[in-house]
Nucleic acid binder design. Sequence first.
DNA 1: CATGAATGAGTTTTCATTCAT
DNA 2: TATGAATGAAAACTCATTCAT
Lengths: 192, 192, 192, 192
Amino acid sequence: MPKIGMEDFRRKTLIAATLKTIQEKGTIDIRVSDIAGHANVSSALAHHYFGSKSQLIQAALRHLLSDFRLAVLKELKNATTPQEKVISLIDACLADDQFSDEIVSAWLIFYAYSQNSMEARKLLQVYVRRLQSNLRYYLRPLCGHKTEEAAEVVGSLIDGIFIRQALRIEKADANYARTLVKECIQPYLARN
Amino acid sequence: MPKIGMEDFRRKTLIAATLKTIQEKGTIDIRVSDIAGHANVSSALAHHYFGSKSQLIQAALRHLLSDFRLAVLKELKNATTPQEKVISLIDACLADDQFSDEIVSAWLIFYAYSQNSMEARKLLQVYVRRLQSNLRYYLRPLCGHKTEEAAEVVGSLIDGIFIRQALRIEKADANYARTLVKECIQPYLARN
Amino acid sequence: MPKIGMEDFRRKTLIAATLKTIQEKGTIDIRVSDIAGHANVSSALAHHYFGSKSQLIQAALRHLLSDFRLAVLKELKNATTPQEKVISLIDACLADDQFSDEIVSAWLIFYAYSQNSMEARKLLQVYVRRLQSNLRYYLRPLCGHKTEEAAEVVGSLIDGIFIRQALRIEKADANYARTLVKECIQPYLARN
Amino acid sequence: MPKIGMEDFRRKTLIAATLKTIQEKGTIDIRVSDIAGHANVSSALAHHYFGSKSQLIQAALRHLLSDFRLAVLKELKNATTPQEKVISLIDACLADDQFSDEIVSAWLIFYAYSQNSMEARKLLQVYVRRLQSNLRYYLRPLCGHKTEEAAEVVGSLIDGIFIRQALRIEKADANYARTLVKECIQPYLARN
DNA sequence: CATGAATGAGTTTTCATTCAT
DNA sequence: TATGAATGAAAACTCATTCAT
């Protein structure tokens, strides 16, 4: 009685379990058996579907990035003017749910992991470049020759807020973070 | 080779070797034998002097932080006015030698590690808070009620530039980075 | 080879192998790999099932004690009068198979080990107290106010015979040992 | 300035430190460095004087035995009749200071060690045989054909009391122990 | 005489991975 | 499809022992 669509279900479950385990342990240095435990399957099954631990982790990273990408796209859809688009990007990056301890932690861990894994590095670079390119595209009509600078500031500021978040004990205020970034770019818009 | 006073020398060498190994491998997940190899000693010696791998890594983190702290203090000494002090802080954080691939990589890796190790987390928190407190202190006469915001922006921006640096392939321009931050806070100063 | 239900079999085999290794080496200071060798499995498997070397040794000790306990209970079943019960206890403690070099050696080693391991100490204390309590219970109707003394003598004598056995080269005579103890308590019975 | 008689002093100190360490750790499985620490010297010195760890432990065992032998001889000197001699032997074996936790523990540990070390086994066998021979010698005029049995009972009882002592938590009563043994052999004397 | 320095040789422990069922 | 069973390979850690000074 082989269940139809089991493969798909198992892959999804295992990826979710991987992210959960990474967040729980606070490191990429986790055991396959722990992941499998979270997914309520044997660790042999994880190998069956993903071939190896590192491929499973790759898949989890890819999932995190694609999830984020979808959130950004969704947010962008509701915006029309460049101003709105920029605001949308900031809101998407610093959205309440992206700002949860778990997500922040996972991002940081993957960033560090990218120092180690060329594969991860490439994936993250694609994401950073795409976001940066979006930012520049929507900032250009607003900032003119300051565009490059403004994009760099916004992008870095967002990442910086993220990384700091990882160190804090107190609950972060996503709303304050968004405001901070928006205020910060005002001068670049004004100068145009 | 048994000359007395070796202990101090070995400890320093081993700490340096640890940082080098972390940077080389791009992860905290390194072998004691690799560290020892870089220090040209047996791995048993590393255990002899530090007790365990994690204690050696702690020591390396502590060293990185204290090195950074000394650089900051040195830079601050040459500044007198609040403006100069703030500039000094930015310059120290984004100094050419702090901006090397190795250092950037080590910082990022330790940031991620802090998700895992309470000890590391505390050490990094102390550093972040101290820097932030310095920033606020010198920004206050310049920014008034915008101080909190300005300090947050500067601090986060610096961290963000750092983290992004870790993803880049092209050589970073430390000078451009410093200028970026300095320009970015101009509006906060002007508004006072 | 992966047949289900192996776990129980392996645990038993590994415990037996542990006792055998202890007896062979004459010390508790044995290698997991030697134990595993006797059980024809990898040392990793020993860790898989028992977690650590000391837990495996604990389990072996527990097994030895429980085996002994069962032998005592079995012997007691065939006795009805207090006299018979006391004889049974002595016979059980100094039974031919308990008196083999391997068992004697293991007991002595565990006794010494109990100086080191609180866990082992507690287990052995329970056994000693239970046996002593049994002895007193059945001696009381026979010895009256001399019960305490008689129980102490029998218990100590048995242990002493055991410990001496460990030092001998010549094969011990279990039968002679049993007679010795039985004769020794006669006076305590008579005095009642 | 080589100090005269240093060698002798160091050997004594190291042997004492060895016994102390064995008692403290409750096992023969101790570190040379711990012994050296107790003697306030470097572990290299222990090797200098004893060649190896096992030779140092041998020496400590030899010392324990010879100390005990001296105590027995001293006690025997004050006795004249066979009765007194037997009493002396019992008193010497169960003397207050031989009955201390440390001594009891050391004896037990050495007994177990003798399962492992042929050297230790031989030393202990010599001691047991000598004591047994003494016992028989003085018991013969008192017990006649029961001598063998009586000697076995006394010897084993003493060892048994010792081994049980090692398991107890409550402080033992050496006096009670001596009385117990003395009462126990009365019947053997009477029967003669 | 004495030791700080150093290490080789082991031993435990961990885990991804394989495989028969 | 799924897993219990098993292990090889690697890594941390320990410690007796050696040696130059």
